[in-house]
Design a protein around this nucleic acid. Structure first.
Length: 475
DNA sequence: TGGGGTTAT
DNA sequence: ATAACCC
């Protein structure tokens, strides 16, 4: 349990109280201090100040494409999905192409634009996990955000490096990359020193990414995830920036609109605007009570703290994915025959992926989007458990697992859509989730005998706090 | 407007 | 099962 630089000690104290103290510290960034309780030294963290790095690859899909085909390197390149240029390299950006521009607009802006199709994510996904695995070598605490971003909690390795560093070398310590605001580093300030060491590790990470994978990216180093993420984007392609605590408010106020705050999405932005809140300063100074009544206590308290640059959310190791899904969107799909055909395509790719992963999904889900329906993003889904005899066949490759799966999905489909009435779909997606290490036989005491020591819940994921309720197959 | 992902309710 | 968030 000794993460985050806690000197764990076993004084025969109750585990339960230790867990409480631990959870408290996670929840409250200010709860530091060498509190002495009952003449027993409670894990005294020097401070609860963490060192977090956010690593953000430059135009990731475009980079992968340029590695696949080096002839694209010096040309303006866009990656296309359906009618959209989802990302593009910096050559293309110079010529006015933006992310998520329609192909039509992009070609108008930049007739020389070279387009490659990026609807198949396989190579991007594979490269993405190579990056995460490389970062995990520095510290196992790596959280993925999409395919091209990772957070790493550097607190522990920074401590280790400082302990190994002779004091005469400390005065020669230098920051790697930019310092936000050009703020001077104070070598007598322990927090500055720790961030500075963090910046050096960030530089090593970027070097390793380039040398081993050929990828460039940005990094931001700060005391929490929010700040690390915001500061990583300050100097943009292939550079890094560290934020010193004194410049935190400057960074927050550099945002021109609350919608630029990670954690404040489309819906919340609209509701905040309705309250007259548009800037970070507006949000900081708005009545907490009214905000809580308007957005609910949870969202209100979280985003208002975010507006001050406060974020106590831990870096949660992502581990292997929780789900695998494949989508296809189209102008029109309106017959059962077409639906079955699309489902078979999606399933073919998914079965390959699930087979490679090794774990077994115990739940399958079908997602659709109907035409028009006014709603943006109006999706509907149905899910059900995968029958155990089908699960068993999953790894074995040869047997026909396709047919029973398609049958299940078509039943889910008919449960959602009345096929006797006309319908018009614009998207189909299939998702495998509820992944388990082994297809555990039904249940009962024998199970523990046959598959010893294989926990069904993921280690690392909220391992504290959850009391380990033993849940049996639910979906 | 894509093709993915996550957690909370 | 949906809704919010992230890329």
């Amino acid at each position: 349990m000794a993460t985050l630089g806690v000197e764990s000690e076993e004084e025969g104290g109750g585990d339960e109280e230790e867990d409480e103290a631990w959870a408290m510290e996670l929840a409250d960034a200010e709860a530091a201090g060498g509190s002495q309780v009952h003449d027993q030294v409670v894990p005294t963290r020097t401070s609860s100040f963490r060192i977090i790095v956010h690593v953000d690859l430059d135009c990731f899909y475009a980079q992968v494409e340029m590695i696949s085909n080096p002839e694209l390197k010096d040309k303006p390149l866009g990656v296309q999905q359906k009618y959209l240029v989802v990302t593009c390299n910096y050559e293309a950006r110079k010529l006015g192409v933006k992310k998520l521009m329609t192909v039509k607009d992009a070609k108008e802006k930049c007739p020389q634009l070279v387009l490659v199709n990026g609807e198949d994510l396989t190579r991007y996904r594979e490269m993405s996990y190579k990056v995460t695995e490389l970062l995990e070598e520095f510290s196992p605490v790596v959280e993925r955000l999409g395919f091209d971003e990772n957070f790493v909690d550097l607190t522990e390795i920074v401590e280790k490096r400082l302990q190994q560093l002779p004091s005469d070398e400390l005065s020669a310590a230098t920051v790697s990359g930019h310092v936000y605001n050009n703020q001077p580093v104070n070598l007598h300030d322990v927090l500055h020193i720790r961030l500075l060491v963090g910046s050096q590790i960030a530089a090593e990470m970027r070097e390793a990414m380039y040398n081993q994978l050929g990828l460039t990216g940005c990094a931001g180093v700060a005391s929490n995830k929010l700040l690390a993420k915001l500061v990583s984007g300050v100097f943009k392609p292939n550079q890094q920036t560290v934020l010193l605590p004194e410049s935190c408010q400057d960074l927050m106020h550099s945002l021109n609109h609350i919608k630029e705050m990670p954690g404040v999405g489309y819906k919340t932005t609209k509701r905040l605007e309705a309250l007259g809140i548009t800037s970070v300063h507006d949000l900081q100074t708005f009545s907490s009570k009214i905000l809580e009544k308007e957005l609910g206590i949870s969202v209100a308290q979280r985003i208002q703290k975010l507006s001050f640059g406060e974020d106590n959310s831990p870096v949660i190791p992502s581990g292997p994915p929780q789900s695998f899904s494949e989508e296809d969107s189209f102008k029109k799909c309106s017959s059962e025959v077409e639906v079955r055909k699309k489902i078979e395509e999606l399933l073919t790719s998914l079965l390959n992926r699930v087979c490679q992963d090794g774990r077994k999904p115990h739940t399958i889900r079908l997602i659709i989007r109907r035409f028009s329906s006014g709603k943006l993003c109006g999706r509907e889904s149905r899910q059900c458990p995968i029958p155990s005899h089908v699960i068993q066949k999953l790894g074995t490759g040869s047997n026909d697992v396709m047919t029973p799966m398609v049958d299940i999905l078509m039943k889910l489909f008919r449960n959602m859509v009345n096929v006797k009435m006309p319908f018009h779909l614009t998207l189909l997606s299939v998702c495998f989730c509820n992944l388990k290490e082994l297809s555990s036989a039904k249940k009962g005491p024998m199970d523990r005998y046959l598959t010893p020591s294989l926990a069904t819940t993921r280690p690392g994921k909220r391992s504290f706090k959850i009391k380990d309720t033993h849940m049996e197959d639910f979906s």
